[in-house]
Structure formats: structure tokens, C-alpha cells
């Protein structure tokens, strides 16, 4: 048996490391907790607690322009996700399958949006839209978001493709399907998990982006984070806290449901398979 001293030492180390983890998580979550608490605070200038209220939630749904910006962000994120997944998925397959002169250049340039500071990408896109005389606004934001999402989608898809047995494609063509049919009926279904995680990544990146959107959004159409950035200096009104609290609740619920949904699907799938045997 391990001696008591050795065990005590281990217990001490264990409790210390638990304490440490709690502290770090506390640091990460403190701002969120404060924000949630203040969303129920009966006080416009949110410095101290002045009693419980739900009026910010009421205000949020009755008269507030903030929600509009959230819808803008969701719309932009949706479009950017769609665009980057289509271009990225087809592009990933194309970049693996075919040899062409610009391939190396394209492969290298994929890393540029990932590694360079966002601000540089933002201003270069601003310059581009200026040169091609594209008015700043929704279109510009969506095009910009697609630009920084495509590389992530391609890298995720590549990981998926490299682990895939490509002989099934040859089998498909051997059985008489042309390239088009093979892509849609064999390759694409195999890529679905990669597409899902690529889409998830794109959506997350797009909806949280401040810097690039800040450069390419015009004065009239802007996203939720950019709006908040402009409000931070003058002071956020508490309905933003209320809105963010709701958003976090949705995310947490989504995560919860996600695992239950997965469990549900797995169960259905298993019984489905079992019924064949």
C-alpha cells in the first residue's frame, strides 16, 4: 500500500490543481456572469446592483434596434457559410484531384487569411472594394466573410479527404456513373461530416467577426458585433446584456440538445441496422 504521506501529497496536488482550474475558468466566465446579472439590473448605468427587473428583456422585444443588427449578422453568417462551404468543398476536391499551373500558388495563398493579422485582410478588402467600386454594405461583408472562411473549410475538407478511400469513386465510375453523378452520389455523401464541421466553423467565425466587418461595412448596414463596438464607447444599454444572455442560453441549450439529438439518432440508427439481421 502506498504510504499515507505519499497519498496526502497526491491529494494536496490534486486539490491544488482543481483549485487552479476553477480559478482559470472563473476568469474566463466572470465577464459573462457579470453581464448576465446586469441584464436583470434595474439601473440604466450598470455600475452597481439596484434591484431585479425584466424590463430590458421587454424593451428588447418591443422597441430596440439591436435585434435588427443581430438579424443582419445571422443573415450574413448564413450566406457566408453557404458560399464558403460550396466554394470550399468543390475547391478542396479540385485541388486534390487536378494538377494545374496555379495550384501551388493557390495552396499557399490559402494560409494567408489564416495567419495574417485580420486588420491587414480587412483593409486590403476595403481597398479592393474601393477599386472595383463595390459599395460597402451587405454584399461586401458577405464576400469578405467568404474570403476568410474558405481556407478553413478547405483545410477541414482536406483532412477528411486524405483519410478517405478514393477507390470507391473509381468503383462508381467503373459501374458506369460519370464524374458528375459520382461526385453527387458517392463523393459528396462521404464528405458530409467534413461539410458539417466546415459549416459550423464558418458560421462561428462569421458571426463573431469584428475587425474585417468593421472595415467593409458601410455607415448604413452593419453587423451586430460592429454595432456593439460603436456602442461600447458611449456605453451599452442593458438590453444588449439581455440579448447576449438569451444568445448564451440558446448556445447552451443547443449544446445540450445536440448531444441528446446525437444519442437519439444513434439509437434509431442502431435499431434500424439491427432490424436487418
Amino acid at each position: 500500500m502506498a504510504s499515507r504521506k505519499r497519498k496526502q501529497k497526491r491529494m494536496l496536488f490534486k486539490s491544488l490543481s482543481n483549485l487552479y482550474a476553477v480559478l482559470v475558468y472563473g476568469f474566463l466566465y466572470a465577464p459573462i456572469a457579470v453581464m448576465m446579472v446586469f441584464s436583470f439590473n434595474d439601473q440604466k448605468v450598470n455600475y452597481y446592483w439596484n434591484g431585479f427587473t425584466l424590463k430590458w428583456y421587454v424593451k428588447l422585444f418591443t422597441d430596440s434596434s439591436i435585434v435588427e443588427y443581430l438579424w443582419n449578422s445571422l443573415f450574413i453568417a448564413g450566406m457566408a457559410t453557404l458560399g464558403s462551404v460550396v466554394i470550399g468543398t468543390i475547391g478542396a476536391v479540385g485541388l486534390i484531384r487536378f494538377e494545374f499551373r496555379l495550384k501551388k500558388l493557390v495552396n499557399h495563398s490559402l494560409y494567408i487569411p489564416i495567419v495574417i493579422p485580420e486588420i491587414v485582410l480587412g483593409l486590403s478588402l476595403l481597398l479592393l472594394f474601393e477599386v472595383i467600386r463595390l459599395p460597402l454594405g451587405f454584399t461586401a461583408i458577405i464576400l469578405s466573410h467568404i474570403t476568410f472562411c474558405v481556407p478553413f473549410v478547405i483545410i477541414i475538407m482536406r483532412g477528411r479527404l486524405s483519410g478517405m478511400d478514393l477507390s470507391v469513386e473509381e468503383a462508381s465510375m467503373d459501374l458506369g456513373a460519370n464524374r458528375m453523378v459520382t461526385f453527387f452520389r458517392v463523393t459528396l455523401p462521404m464528405l458530409v461530416p467534413g461539410i458539417m464541421s466546415g459549416a459550423f466553423m464558418s458560421f462561428t467565425l462569421s458571426i463573431d467577426d469584428v475587425i474585417i466587418s468593421n472595415f467593409v461595412s458601410g455607415p448604413y448596414s452593419t453587423t451586430f458585433p460592429v454595432k456593439i463596438l460603436s456602442l461600447v464607447k458611449t456605453g451599452l444599454s442593458p438590453e444588449v446584456n439581455a440579448l447576449t444572455t438569451i444568445m448564451i442560453a440558446v448556445i447552451l441549450l443547443g449544446l445540450l440538445i445536440n448531444s441528446t439529438v446525437q444519442a437519439f439518432i444513434r439509437k434509431r440508427f442502431l435499431t434500424h441496422i439491427k432490424s436487418y439481421f
Binding site: A30, P31, I32, V34, M35, F38, D208, V210, F224, P225, I228, L229, V232, L236, V240, N241, T244, M247, I248, I251
Partner: peptide, 9 residues
């Protein structure tokens, strides 16, 4: 969750 809101907190 929105980084800016956290910073504002």
C-alpha cells in the same frame, strides 16, 4: 459569446 460584450462587462 460576443467578445465585445465580454469586454464591456
Amino acid at each position: 459569446t460576443n467578445t465585445l460584450v465580454r469586454l464591456y462587462s
